[in-house]
């Protein structure tokens, strides 16, 4: 009993610690990446290569005066950032960072919440992501905030549809909801060189999912929630200092969690990257290689996010809705029906 509680505690600390610890690095990469793409330097003054800039930012956020506007709804105003961060952290609970370990006859699963419905759980809790934003916008009691929150919410609900069609297609393909089985199915090679990743079977679903991630995490080109040319800063307009920083963190963690889901479904999760599997395997080296592979994959996804952010301009709101409902959703449904039919006839 005590052992079980200890195990869950350790796992929780590790699973929550990695993304929270990686946040400053990601934010640094984002800002330096922006500088790199726009042919300027970016923050490079604090520490070597400006690496200590995120720490300076955190210190600034901590010590900044917290402006608490008088016209807000106080309880919900304070609650909203917490809701946003908690909900963003929830999907991480079922994301495995390596294969189950066999230690002295006991199987230890690397995820906090072990279930054969892992992918369903992650998707279900990430669907709650819009509540923090909606609550923040409404509690701010400000027209710009409210508009930003409503936009964000409508956008998330719309893009969740095409996202879910692609997830269901992948569940049909693998015939399971268990993340470990999905990853095992993607280990190995076709023709000796092409990794058995879901991306190569279902490129359309992968594309739908990718667009869905951008919309769900409110990143450019879908960051209508904070379109500063129209509605100032959107839902976090009235928030300052640490409360604003928590919203910011929630957005990045949501991004990490959705990237991890994308990698599990389409890029083989923790399965070892081609090239790295030349290294001789052993019970100690394999988990490290798996963690390394997952980290590299997520890092590449994050770089992709940064790249897109500073490359594409923002969509107009009607264009956003057109893309979501008239282009992506029909594509997703066609893809789903085709996948179901093919799976059915193949299993006959």
């Amino acid at each position: 009993m005590l052992e079980g509680i200890l195990e869950i505690l350790i796992k929780t600390v590790v699973i929550l610690g990695i993304p929270l610890g990686a946040l400053p690095i990601i934010i640094h990469v984002e800002r330096r990446g922006a500088g790199f793409i726009q042919r300027r330097l970016g923050p490079n003054r604090v520490g070597p290569f400006g690496l200590l800039q995120p720490l300076a930012d955190v210190a600034k956020f901590m010590f900044k005066e917290e402006v608490h506007p008088t016209h807000v709804r106080p309880f919900f105003y304070s609650l909203a950032p917490l809701v946003a961060l908690t909900v963003a952290l929830l999907p991480l609970a079922c994301i495995p960072i390596m294969a189950p370990l066999e230690i002295s006859g006991r199987t230890i699963y690397p995820e906090v919440f072990r279930s054969d419905m892992g992918i369903f759980y992650a998707f279900a809790v990430s669907a709650l992501g819009s509540y923090g934003i909606l609550l923040g916008g409404w509690a701010s009691n400000n027209k710009f905030s409210m508009l930003g929150a409503l936009r964000a919410c409508a956008q998330m609900v719309s893009y969740e549809l095409s996202l879910s069609t692609s997830i269901v297609a992948m569940i049909f393909l693998y015939g399971t909801n268990d993340i470990h089985v999905m990853v095992t199915a993607q280990t190995g090679y076709w023709f000796g060189f092409l990794p058995k990743w879901g991306f190569f079977i279902q490129p359309l679903a992968a594309m739908l999912f990718l667009v869905g991630i951008f919309a769900e995490s409110n990143r450019l080109p879908f960051d209508l929630a904070e379109g500063e040319s129209e509605i100032v800063a959107g839902y976090h307009l009235e928030y300052s200092s640490m409360k604003f920083a928590i919203f910011f963190m929630a957005e990045y963690i949501h991004m990490i969690a959705l990237s991890a889901l994308f990698i599990i479904l389409f890029f083989g999760g923790y399965s070892i990257l081609p090239g790295l599997d030349m290294i001789p395997q052993s019970p100690i080296i394999t988990p490290i290689l798996q963690m390394g592979s997952l980290t590299i994959k997520i890092a590449m996804m994050i770089w992709f996010f940064v790249w897109v952010r500073w490359t594409l301009p923002r969509f107009r709101y009607d264009q956003l809705m057109d893309i979501g409902w008239q282009r992506l959703l029909p594509l997703g449904i066609i893809n789903l029906i085709a996948t179901v039919l093919i799976t059915y006839f193949r299993n006959q």
Partner: peptide, 12 residues
Amino acid sequence: VFLAAIQVLVNA
């Protein structure tokens, strides 16, 4: 877990 996930996904 499945029913719980569906409850969260659809109703909540």
